[in-house]
Design a protein around this nucleic acid. Structure first.
Length: 575
RNA sequence: CGGGGCGUGGCGCAGCCUGGCAGCGCGCCUGCUUUGGGAGCAGGAAGUCGGAGGUUCGAAUCCUCUCGCCCCGACCA
């Protein structure tokens, strides 16, 4: 490709509204332009990178036995009503009507459509297993799109769906996809980690997220410093066997009777600890949750936070939400801030860390009052203990008990065992070898393509610009024709360019009528791995300069050796 | 949904408080000079100041409404 013919509008200045480096560089390097909030156009350079990633994905998906399809982005409401998600999905689902007044949505995901297809076409166990995927634009009306391609509203996603005869085979399909994902992200040159993720209330299933490690990542990951345990924050378990025992012990003598203390307008844990002069780990927070069925109270230590997902999974309900003020008053007789377990008529669940606590401080269920010297068993009872809170950095690895580490990541892929959730809702069945009708067992597997590109840049850049990994670089080599008006420079640059093209190496020839400095700056910015500088100075001694973007390593190479030298990089590619 | 900020040539911004010729840097076009890390000089094109309404002799500037973009927050009792 000739730069003079390429639509590649680079920018010298960093755009004001781009916060993260990948977003800034994608705009500066002329890869993307914003159309409107969370919606972007891919310019030629950006599209090439996207297509590189897509090619890697296709190769690995096909290798794993999946077949490509392409589904519509407009989906009829009926399918979503069938699975109940028309009501559950909320405002992220962009809905609209056609001219006849029929309801439609823009697909944020395609479980319904693919399940509809498969239930109509698959009859027999002989048709299974089946794995279908597509690379397609999704639309999710995010509350707050940000960070460019990292969290857009319209975005490119690879989504795959597996269909198997039973759980055991579905699990095999799952691990096949897991392995394919490992290969995909390795080939993209990313440093990543597969972490255990929450899989929702539908029993027995499991899930992994593929996280690209980056400080700017939106997701918190918990990893063990010793074993290979890794999970996202929502999923990370807390093993009571490894609880730190230095918290929760009584400070004073045991057995003091519960005593009411006035706490005028003192509501938060911080206020109460300051006012009553106790440590937060001697406080118990009592939170009331609505569950769609009957409300429950959850007790956690003052310095801990309830993990609603763990609560949701424990109760086996679709949603849990903190009760509003009206409900709190109704159930406790006091406004939020003074809730306690004593005298509560609803079911009380406690986090495991409540179990060893003695002499605790709780709300009095009375406005402006708390109780001190409260003992479980003597003053109140709970109906059960469970792991109900978020892990903290001072907790230990649930597997081996060693220290854990909090890191941040960008979720680029998610593999998910769905089980029979959709096949049941939409009656996707097959006949087994006994002629008996059975539900198809499903899995689904997503990769954010644009997000993968953004994550790669997040992980591979310096102050001069992007440093593309070889595998996803828009071009492998750029040839800078420093003085295009000099016929010797021009013809030698053309010769190298043509030679590289013949060697099937994607090359960008910078033949623009620009000053050398501009060409150097742009070459650095757009992050092409190899730069070949053809200029008057070097040609005097029959040489050009070959420089690696990542290391800055520079070589003066004789004209006749250039192609061979570059081909050498591909035999053992340095990322 | 709540709070805050910003909309002024293609990009980044000043001007607004205190109403009176629409400016600066970068980019773009032309010419000359220059040419191995974002050149210099000279000349030039380009903005209904987000939109609508109002106040005023006069509005980018003041008032009302509206649209868009960005940031923060969204109840842990």
């Amino acid at each position: 490709m000739r730069y003079s013919q390429l639509f590649l509008p680079t920018q010298r200045e960093t755009p004001a509204d781009a916060e993260v480096v990948s977003h800034q560089l994608m705009i500066r390097a002329g890869m993307i332009r914003k159309l409107t909030s969370g919606i972007y156009t891919y310019l030629p350079l950006g599209l090439r990178v996207i297509q590189k990633i897509e090619t890697i994905i296709r190769e690995e998906m096909n290798r794993a036995g999946a077949q490509e399809v392409l589904m519509p982005s407009v989906q009829p409401a009926e399918l979503w009503q069938e699975t109940g998600r028309w009501n559950v999905y909320g405002k992220e689902l962009l809905r609209f009507k056609d001219r006849h007044g029929r309801d439609y949505c823009l697909g944020p995901t395609h479980e319904e459509v693919i399940t509809d297809l498969v239930r109509k076409e698959v009859r027999s166990y002989r048709d299974l297993p089946l794995n279908l995927y597509q690379i397609q634009n999704k639309f999710r009306d995010e509350i707050r799109p940000r960070f460019g391609l990292m969290r857009g509203r319209e975005f490119i996603m690879k989504d795959a769906y597996s269909f198997d005869i039973d759980e055991e085979h579905a699990e095999k399909s799952y691990w096949k996809m897991y392995d394919a994902y490992v290969r995909i992200f390795e080939r993209c040159g990313l440093k990543f980690k597969a972490v255990e993720a929450d899989s929702g209330a539908i029993g027995g299933t499991f899930s992994h997220e593929f996280m690209v490690l980056a400080d700017t990542g939106e997701d918190a990951i918990v990893t063990c410093t010793s074993c290979d345990y890794a999970a996202n924050l929502e999923k990370a378990e807390i093993n009571p066997d490894y609880a730190r025992d230095r918290y929760g012990k009584p400070l004073g003598s045991k057995g003091l009777p519960a005593e009411k203390r006035g706490t005028p307008n003192i509501k938060t844990v911080e206020e109460v600890t300051r006012f009553l002069r106790v440590r937060p780990d001697r406080l118990v927070k009592t939170l009331i949750f609505e569950t769609g069925k009957e409300p429950v109270a959850v007790l956690v230590r003052g310095d801990h936070e309830v993990n609603p997902i763990k609560l949701k999974n424990l109760l086996g309900v679709e949603t849990v939400a903190l009760a509003d003020e009206t409900l709190v008053r109704e159930l406790t007789g006091a406004p939020p801030g003074f809730t306690g377990p004593l005298g509560l008529k609803i079911r009380i669940l406690a986090d495991n860390d409540i179990r060893p606590m003695e002499d605790m401080v709780v709300g009095a269920n009375e406005e402006d009052a708390h109780l001190v010297h409260v003992y479980r068993g003597r003053d109140f009872d709970v109906s059960g203990f469970a792991d109900l809170r978020f892990i903290t950095p001072s907790d230990r690895c649930p597997r081996c008990g060693k220290d854990i580490l909090f890191i941040r990541g960008i979720e680029v892929g998610h593999v998910f065992k769905l089980g029979e959730k959709y096949s049941q809702a939409m009656s996707a069945t097959y006949l087994d070898d006994q002629g008996k009708e059975r539900l198809i067992v499903m899995g689904c597997y997503g990769i954010g393509v644009g997000r993968t590109a953004a994550a790669a840049i997040e992980q591979n850049h310096d102050q001069d610009g992007i440093i593309f990994p070889w595998s996803i670089a828009p071009f492998q080599v750029t040839v800078l024709m420093l003085q295009p008006e000099d016929s010797e420079v021009a013809s030698q640059a053309e010769k190298i360019y043509n030679g590289l093209k013949e060697a099937n190496i994607e090359t960008l020839l910078d033949d623009r009528d620009e000053r050398p400095g501009v060409k150097f700056k742009d070459a650095d910015l757009i992050g092409i791995p190899v730069r070949i500088t053809v200029g008057e100075r070097g040609l005097k001694s029959g040489q050009v300069e070959i420089r690696l973007r990542r290391t800055g390593e520079t070589d003066e190479v004789r004209l006749e050796n250039v192609i061979e030298k570059v081909r050498g990089f591909f035999r053992e590619p340095v990322s």
